[in-house]
Write a protein that binds this DNA or RNA. Structure first.
Length: 565
RNA sequence: UGGGGAAUAGUGUAACGGUAGCACGACUGACUCUGGAUCAGUUAGUCCAGGUCCGAAUCCUGGUUCCCCAGCCA
């Protein structure tokens, strides 16, 4: 049994949906929504929510999922984010069809609802300053005090609210509040603000409005208007549910069910939009799409596939308690996908020149290489072989330790798809650095097999010196050195845990000639090294690759263990 | 200190009163023209203490620990 066999294992939210369907609670409908505020870029945590909401809709007959921009705060929101969010959701493989909505489209209707609440004596205009409001609210343990404006008459409230809308008051001068209970142990119920005055240009409604609804007031209405059945949000909104319910009940309107789940945390990275922004602002990363970022655009640039991210979301499950998923699971998911789909290619990241002394000068052979051993239909290609080659610097050791199977003086290894070679001489520069290897090849092993049946312990990747192309390769590691980046000493913040070695730029790499002209976004496996993706900085004249993830590498582990000893 | 949530191998998740299972990780071994992939195996868990029951991860009682709430953010 594998993780795909989830038909019998429903998470608690899907159980609720299934139960509601059984009891016909919503008349057989399933309508969810993904409601981002367009104030930043989406990250892998959003992917969990997208996968959940669109997934539930897709799994149920007639199910719908709305993409709704929760644009109730013009100060933080921009059109640019709307486009990036749409792009990312689409890239992840989800389609909202014609179900694209904006909270701002409901402003008029929300206003009317607010008037209703005022008429019902359940909302009032309050003149307290923000600071006074805080004082009146009380604390976690002390009840709040009623605002002196709480007793204002309906007529006065109506008039003042209208004048608020008309722009007669300056920002912060007055708010509209719900009249609930200043002594409630749930602070969200202590007469929460419904409207605040913001003389700000809204990216969609322009200057039509100068009062804007708060989240608590707006969100339930948005869900209600769109006839959502299950309003799925994260745990921190649990305390808001009584308020969500209160507004809809007081209005007597269609009332979806809010369900909360735990947001995603991933080891060695952070998910907080605010902190991610700090990394960008402080230049610790190159931007929101830096391949080290957990943003969707970062992962895309890194070479992650939508399929692998969806699969990751499926595997992590959904629950009501905070947890931190091991980033190794995400990495496993890309490897799993890329192993099946990506063409193999040879590239040498840190070149070491090898001269095959007994190979004819000027001779070039085109050797056949398999494009993808996991996919026979991918076929084969020709790779040029010649007298002078490059191999990986770390594939040679003058004094090989135990368990090092690769090239060493006097040792025979195989060059993949080519010949067996034996190292006969090591050339060093003045500082003692190995700069060149001399080897002899066995012509009888052409293609990589010895007719006499002798074996070698390892196979190396290589490129022909004269035929290979220069490339820049960017190696990435975890963004932070600690599993939990927020684990810090007093006086410093999470940024002190940024991994100084999370990016390594290699500029003089050599790749096989078949890569000439490869397009940005193309993904490959560099044999024995890992999965790489062509960066959008790449051009015909200058190839640039990002390492998505390494291959599983037992030798690296052995080496690490040997060093520690 | 008030209120609201939650605790299952190292990590993430199943089991819904009836054999604690799966995945990732780690570790063996087999195979291999990628030290990849694949295959086989090992490892390891119900927060604690009581109680109910033939039987408890599940129900009850008491405790412990963690998360959220004092924005005119979402």
């Amino acid at each position: 049994m594998n993780a795909n066999d989830s038909t019998t294992k429903l998470d608690f939210i899907r159980q609720i949906v299934a139960e509601d369907l059984k009891t016909n609670k919503w008349g057989g409908r399933v309508v969810t929504r993904f409601p981002p505020e367009p104030n930043g870029y989406l990250h892998i945590g959003h992917a969990k929510s997208i996968y959940l909401n669109f997934g539930i809709a897709a799994e149920n007959k007639g199910g719908l999922c709305n993409l709704r921009f929760d644009d109730t705060n013009p100060i933080k929101e921009e059109e640019e984010y709307i486009e990036s969010i749409k792009k990312d959701v689409r890239w992840l493989g989800f389609d909202w069809g014609d179900r694209l909505f904006y909270a701002s489209d409901y402003f008029e209707q929300m206003y009317e609802y607010a008037v209703q609440l005022i008429k019902k004596g359940k909302a009032y205009v309050c003149d307290l300053t923000a600071e006074q409001t805080r004082e009146y609210r009380g604390t976690l343990t002390k009840p709040g005090k009623n605002s002196p404006y709480r007793g204002r008459g309906v007529e006065e409230n109506l008039e003042l609210f209208e004048r608020m809308r008309a722009g007669e008051f300056e920002e912060g001068r007055r708010v509209l509040r719900a009249k609930i209970d200043m002594a409630s142990p749930n602070l969200n119920l202590r007469d929460p603000v419904m409207y605040r005055i913001l003389h700000a240009e809204h990216h969609r409604t322009g200057d039509k409005w100068c009062i804007y609804p708060t989240y608590d007031w707006a969100h339930g209405l948005e869900d209600s208007i769109e006839k959502i059945t299950h309003s799925i949000c994260t745990l921190e909104f649990e305390n808001h549910r009584p308020l969500y319910d209160w507004f809809l009940d007081e209005l007597g309107v269609y009332h979806p069910q809010q369900v909360e789940f735990a947001r995603l945390n991933l080891s060695y990275t952070i998910m907080s939009k605010r902190k991610l922004q700090q990394l960008v602002q402080d230049g610790l990363v190159s931007g929101w799409d830096d391949p080290r970022m957990p943003t969707i655009c970062g992962l895309r640039r890194r070479g992650y596939t939508p399929e692998s991210i969806r699969n990751f979301c499926k595997r992590i499950g959904v629950n009501k308690f905070n947890s931190t998923v091991d980033i190794a699971l995400l990495e496993h998911c890309v490897r799993e996908d890329l192993n099946k789909t990506s063409p193999r290619v040879m590239a040498v990241l840190r070149p070491l020149k090898v001269v095959i002394d007994n190979y004819p000068q000027g001779q070039v052979e085109e050797l056949e290489a398999i494009n993808n051993p996991e996919d026979a239909s991918a076929g084969t290609r020709k790779v040029p072989f010649s007298r002078e080659l490059y191999v990986e610097r770390e594939d040679f050791m003058e004094e090989p330790p135990k368990k090092f199977y690769r090239l060493a003086p006097g040792r025979e290894v195989r060059l993949r798809y080519a010949y067996f070679i034996t190292c006969t001489d090591v050339v060093k520069d003045a500082s003692g650095q190995v700069v060149e290897l001399h080897c002899r090849y066995d012509p009888a092993t052409r293609g990589g097999d010895a007719p006499d049946g002798r074996k070698v312990k390892s196979t190396l990747h290589w490129v022909s010196a004269a035929h290979s192309l220069e490339a820049e390769v960017r190696l990435y590691d975890h963004l932070f050195t600690k599993e939990n980046p927020d684990d810090v000493e007093n006086g410093v913040d999470f940024k002190s845990n940024v991994n100084p070695n999370s990016l390594e730029m290699l500029v003089l790499c050599r790749v096989e000639p078949s890569l000439a002209g490869t397009a940005p976004g193309s993904r490959y496996q560099f044999e024995r090294l890992g999965y790489f993706c062509v960066d959008h900085d790449s051009s015909i004249g200058k190839l640039v690759f990002n390492r998505t993830v390494t291959l599983r590498d037992p030798w690296a582990k052995i080496q690490k263990a040997q060093k520690q000893r």
